[in-house]
Design a protein around this nucleic acid. Structure first.
Lengths: 347, 347
DNA sequence: TAGGTCATGAGGCACGTACCTCATGGCGGG
DNA sequence: CCCGCCATGAGGTACGTGCCTCATGACCTA
């Protein structure tokens, strides 16, 4: 049993006593410092498990007398969701500082794998304990993630995951479920069926391809009366998306629905409103930003599926905190929900 | 300006130096201990403001060598949402302990103001720094809230607010917006209009009356073709709600929609499925629980509006942390969003 | 066997705050 | 004038962990 009972939490002293080693050895094990035989380390681990020792985060940070250094690497450009992610980070800088976390943000060119890889390669463990990135699945990025991990930097993915790399955690929504949700709403909005066009940013982005897969699957299974057009790639850019939408409207006079699973919504809304069919076409888009808000209010967009950037940043910071101190365990974070927004529940 | 520059955060030592007083005096001011003249206290406050001192939470909790004591008082009974709130609290107990927070949960009889008031009156500041309650607007409860506050206990409201009392914070959704959202969805689901019945738990609960007000307003403004029936009160109970729904179905063979803005959804789903009209009536309910999940899956319910209990508990704990230590300021917490769930984005 | 490496122990200081005791000096009342 | 109350200062210890130095003994190798 537990000789300290319920009176107080276990401390490193208790661990040392239980393992029959000195405080210094416990400390070496806890902080992964060299100079401990495997057998001894195991004894310590066993003692930790037995008495249920949990490192005191407050004391730990206090003792280090240094801030946890977090670096967010976020795509730059016209993608407004990325801007709102960066804003969300900025809002956390102050409060995080009160929790001994120092946050930096780097903006890099969007959809540029090599720029991201270079940025990751430039990270120095002395100035960055943890990096949070928004990345597509490109070999150069994957290599840079693993290299940074080898240098001791904890890497986490945000919005779009990089399975198969050494990234320690992913923060974002279930994008396949988001696609299914879009399909389900679209199906209900169009009980008579009709043509629905799909626009993506880039199918090399895992979040986009996952959404498409979910949308297709749910549509096929539940709403066979709907005919799918596309997907067309708009590269998350305003002007490109604008011309794509204009073209779709021109070519399909009977277009009943539009699902933009990528960004570039300013172009989408502009093209819709320039036509006289805004409001006559059911439109579903992603991410609650200025353009999609405007679209919801004007009636150009019916539903916006969203991943709350503030929530994502909050969870990213919480995960970084637990990972950077917890060592090898997994971070247990609250899942990010798929938000559904209509004109009436805009936040 | 700030003589310590950007090199490190300000500490109590810096405050003492800036105010020209001793550490002991700063400490007395910071912790509200007696023995400081008003003029001196003001000097200290001014110094704190000037150099932007922020008490180090970690060090503070460490030095106290005691846990922050939090008590949740949650209604008992057949209301499954309250059960999921309690579950959410239970899930946080462990992690919170690692952050030096000791959490207790009291379950009391639902909709029983005097039981809640007694429970609040029984709280002792020695065993409870902060109480989080789910309460209706009843004079006895309001008095108990103010009394507890006078005893030094920070009281926060959850789910349903108590404006006009000394409660320090409210955690929950914007219920009027939730009602408007329900109306907007219902209107879109019923483009031809029709009869829509409304069921509430109790209109003495502020969250319920707010939802009703929002629903009514949005329906009236945007969907005049919809005829509203009710509201009928089901007192958040399964059996009562069951008979209400059965009765509505029997009396209105042409019922097109149903909005249950309270609990008792197990009864609602059972009554719908017992009839042969499940799926033919558009149904919107609140709170993602076992009954509403089942309803969504079976098609008996179309949409569930939800307030994420885990998020609410997380924010409640965060707010308690900042309030119990921050003193007189306001807690800045992330807003709780109105979740919208269909069969396809069930979490 | 001497010198070297390595695992471990012992102990101390630091982090920023809370809280305690004791000393000191001012000031008013009897 | 002296006693006592009060505001304040001075300084200490403690919280749990991180990190440092130094000592000690075991073991290996030349």
């Amino acid at each position: 049993m537990n000789e300290i009972g319920l009176r107080r939490r276990a401390t490193v002293h208790d661990v040392a006593r239980a393992a029959g080693v000195s405080l210094a050895t416990v400390d070496r094990v806890l902080n992964g410092r060299p100079g401990v035989r495997a057998a001894t380390a195991e004894k310590v681990e066993a003692a930790i498990a037995e008495i249920g020792f949990q490192r005191d985060l407050s004391a730990s940070l206090l003792a280090r007398a240094r801030d946890l250094k977090l670096t967010f690497i976020i795509p730059d450009g016209s993608n407004e969701f990325m801007a709102s992610l960066a804003d969300a980070v900025a809002r956390r800088v102050g409060p995080a500082l009160a929790d001994r976390m120092h946050i930096e943000t780097h903006r890099i060119k969007a959809l540029d794998a090599h720029a991201l890889a270079r940025s990751l390669d430039a990270l120095d463990i002395r100035h960055c304990d943890c990096a949070v990135i928004v990345a597509g699945e490109e070999p150069s990025v994957q290599a840079a993630v693993d290299s940074a991990t080898r240098r001791g930097i904890v890497v986490m993915t945000l919005v779009s995951d990089l399975p198969g790399t050494q990234r320690r955690h992913f923060i974002g929504i279930d994008n396949e479920a988001a696609g299914r949700t879009a399909a389900s709403l679209m199906g209900r909005f169009l009980p008579q069926g009709g043509k629905v066009a799909v626009i993506a940013g880039s199918l090399h982005l895992r979040d986009h391809s996952d959404r498409l897969a979910g949308f297709r699957a749910a549509l096929g299974a539940e709403f066979p009366a709907i005919e799918l057009i596309g997907p067309v790639e708009g590269h998350d850019e305003r002007s490109e998306t604008h011309s794509i939408v204009a073209d779709l409207l021109e070519r399909h006079g009977d277009l009943a629905g539009l699902y933009n699973l990528g960004a570039g919504n300013a172009g989408l809304v502009a093209a819709l409103e320039a036509s006289n069919r805004s409001g006559a076409i059911r439109v579903i888009a992603h991410e609650l930003t200025e353009p999609t808000r405007r679209g919801l209010r004007s009636g150009a967009i019916d539903v916006v599926l969203d991943q709350n950037p503030d929530g994502e940043i909050r969870e990213a910071i919480a995960a970084a905190r637990s990972l950077a101190l917890g060592g090898s365990g997994k971070a247990a974070t609250d899942p990010i929900e798929i938000g559904i927004f209509l004109r009436d529940n805009l936040r």
